[in-house]
Design a protein around this nucleic acid. Structure first.
Lengths: 107, 107
DNA sequence: AAAATAATTCGATGATTGTCGAACCACGCG
DNA sequence: CGCGTGGTTCGACAATCATCGAATTATTTT
């Protein structure tokens, strides 16, 4: 008998594959910018997706996290029924120095 | 007899009116990013719109400059038949410190 | 086993966007 | 004056995007 353990995983692009335009695009939506800022405020702690306060449906929320993931900005990992999200801080700082600071300061 | 001297002018938003999302949005297009980089390379010298090399039609070009202008990134001024474009460098550096450096470094 | 929880996937829909050609306007020059 | 140059404006069109509800999957709790 064969076993196949199915675990949901997420694909994260390598940093060097990421274009600045993609990052800008991802951050051009107020919801997504809010998500990133929340993560910045969490000081490195990973957040469950639903921990981020947003007035949008589950589906839309999932979509925004997907976009941020594809843009290389966040990292997602399943943990039981929750999915824990964190910023790819050090990588972003290496690839796009100043970006996170810009976002944190901005307003 | 009444005179009405009609001169084409451009409206430029004040810096404090500009949201980071709008800036990100404007820079999320490869053409527009290329324009900004060209201006960065011009070291403060204002460029005529058509001086920027782009494989797009006049109409599209005009559109992109309009978007950049609305986002507060460039400043445009008529000069005879040409329109001269320059970066709003110091203002951008004040409002969004690190942004221009990010764009210049990016790749 | 059933219920509750957390999140993704799947259409669908309406809005925004990038692109273009064509028409247009203002200026400077012969 | 008429023409060329530089740029804008106006539809139009296709593509992308944000948003949602409903169906679905996986896990934990009861």
């Amino acid at each position: 008998m064969a076993w196949c353990i199915v675990v949901k995983t997420y694909s994260h692009p390598a940093m060097h594959e990421i274009a600045l335009t993609a990052v800008m695009q991802a951050l051009s939506d107020p919801c997504r910018l809010a998500i990133v800022r929340e993560l910045l405020g969490a000081k490195g702690r990973a957040l469950a997706c639903n921990e981020v306060r947003l007035n949008i449906s589950k589906a839309t929320r999932s979509h925004h996290f997907e976009v941020l993931r594809a843009a290389g900005i966040i990292h997602t990992k399943m943990d039981g029924t929750k999915c824990m999200t964190s910023l790819r801080r050090s990588e972003l700082n290496k690839r796009f120095p100043g970006l996170l600071k810009l976002i944190a300061a901005g307003n």
